[in-house]
Write a protein that binds this DNA or RNA. Sequence first.
DNA 1: CCAAAGTCGGACTGAAATAGTCGTATATCG
DNA 2: CGATATACGACTATTTCAGTCCGACTTTGG
Lengths: 134, 134
Amino acid sequence: MVRLSKKVEYGLIALRHMAARPAGEIVTAKEVADRYGIPYELLAKVLQRLGKEGMIASHQGVRGGYSLARDPREIPVSAIIHAIEGTVPVIAQCLSDGPDSCDVFNLCTIKSPLTKVQANIERAFHSMTLSEIV
Amino acid sequence: MVRLSKKVEYGLIALRHMAARPAGEIVTAKEVADRYGIPYELLAKVLQRLGKEGMIASHQGVRGGYSLARDPREIPVSAIIHAIEGTVPVIAQCLSDGPDSCDVFNLCTIKSPLTKVQANIERAFHSMTLSEIV
DNA sequence: CCAAAGTCGGACTGAAATAGTCGTATATCG
DNA sequence: CGATATACGACTATTTCAGTCCGACTTTGG
């Protein structure tokens, strides 16, 4: 399968929600969760993560919440995915770095052609910004 | 994560292996499994699947095995993925048809923009054929 | 005919990733 | 102080994926 995680979907929905209203306006996690039927606790974690990555600004306390930290036109979808998942999405195991890379795949004959496809996919995610998610 | 399954990787390796030798030559599952260190039983299933989908021809019996059924230049990678996974890879849950489609995602604001990304990814897989996997 | 070498195909198990929950701490405002 | 937020880690449940096992069928060759 080639599929984004629910976390990423939720993150995109929340960010879009913020982008669709006046810049700087504060939105709470609960508000978004209720609005879109997303489990609150899970969304909260996603937003915390996005906060840590500098994608959104967090405001604690009683009138707190989150607000977009950047211009939606300058936030590519790829950055959102990366912020939430931590790792860069890699199409096939034999392309990944680190210890779990090619153990079986020393003999892997597929590696180099797949890097091209990989590049295409990354471009697809990189060329779309939050502002385009209308 | 955005990643192909092992089955697809194994399938690609096997098909490439066949494409790299004289057309019509018969190759056994065991042969490929040994050559690339792939679990035999799993590869066998993948090849069975590819056979059912008409991607390769199966030959039963003692001198049996598999052979490519089509010109490698006419087999796009997308067809291979589709044959093995059964379903079309869909980037996000809200894009899929059927019962598990939008239950939470009626309110999903992300659907239409993601279809564009989806189309890009499909194009990436569609534009590469087996013959290009050198 | 029969045995060996193949494919065919479903049921099963184990491991790992993902989704979701819970509890508690901390900050802020009125 | 008390209500309302975020912060954060530990825990559980669910699903998906990888891999295994087993029995059946098919063909070739002796």
